[in-house]
Amino acid sequence: MAVERTIRHIKALATGAKYMLGGHRLTLMYPDDIQEFPDGYRGMIEYDWDTCIKCGLCAMVCPADAMKMYVSKEESEEGKRPVRRPGINYTRCIFCGFCVDICPTNSLKFTKVHDVAFYTFEEQIYPPEKFREGIPKPQYDKEPRKVRAVLDEKRGIRYEPVE
C-alpha cells in the first residue's frame, strides 16, 4: 500500500515535470492574437431596418427580456399610429439566438463580434434607431494577428495564423 502510494506520488511529480519542460501553452494571447470564429458564432446582433415586418416575435421569445419593442417616433408621427420596432439591451442579452431563429424575415443576424467595451451603462442599450446603425467596430492598439484554433491529438489546442 505504502509502496503503491509512493509510486503514485512519483508518477504525479513526473507528469508535472513533463508539462513544465514541455514548453507548450494553451493561452490565446488575446489582444495580440484574435481568434477567427466558425460560421454560426453567436456574437452581437445586426438588425435590418428595411426587411423587418415589426411582428414582435423577437421580443416575445427573448428569455432574458433583452429584446423589446420600442415606439419608433418618426414613423409613428408619419403614420399617425404607434409603430413599434425591436431594440436590444446588451446588459441583459445572453446571446441565446432565439430572436435570430424566430425572425420570419431574417432581419436579425449574428455577427462574429463580441469584444466591445462600453463606458456607460446606457451605451449598452440599443433602441431601434441605434440598432439599425450596426455594431461598434472593435478597436485594437495595433492590428492583431488572426488565428484559428486547431485540435491537435498530441498537444491539445494549437493556434494557426489565418491569412
Binding site: 513544465m20 501553452r25 494553451l26 494571447m29
Partner: peptide, 10 residues
C-alpha cells in the same frame, strides 16, 4: 511561473 508552465499557461 512554474505553476503556469505546468498548467500550460503563461
Amino acid at each position: 511561473k512554474i505553476a503556469a508552465k505546468v498548467q500550460l499557461r503563461y
